[in-house]
């Protein structure tokens, strides 16, 4: 899905936990997530803390979209 959307020239950031799969499949901008069942959250945190965590990941994703890349890049 990432690639076939990006084929239209729209940059796509792939937020996922298992980044090696994303690398194999061929996403160009990859942001690591927290865990498979809750990629953008952590149920151990309070609701407020969790939202801050989520915002940090989304901000990282936006940063990735703002960064020119010429090859597959994982934004740690």
């Amino acid at each position: 899905m990432v690639k076939n959307i990006e084929k239209y020239g729209i940059p796509v950031v792939h937020v996922c936990t298992v980044t090696p799969i994303s690398m194999t499949v061929g996403a160009n901008r990859i942001v690591p997530a927290i865990a498979i069942p809750h990629p953008l959250g952590n149920p151990k945190l309070s609701a407020d803390e969790e939202k801050v965590l989520r915002r940090n990941i989304v901000e990282k994703a936006l940063k990735a979209l703002e960064t020119p890349v010429d090859k597959q890049t994982i934004f740690e």
């Binding site: 729209i10 940059p11 950031v13 936990t17």
Partner: peptide
């Protein structure tokens, strides 16, 4: 299947002048 979905979704996004996509996976 994923390819096909990506293609169809991408087309809709182009039509709506979307600039960038956040795609999340579990």
């Amino acid at each position: 299947s994923a390819k096909k979905y990506g293609e169809e979704i991408g087309k809709k996004l182009v039509d709506d002048h979307v600039d960038a996509v956040i795609l999340t996976s579990t």
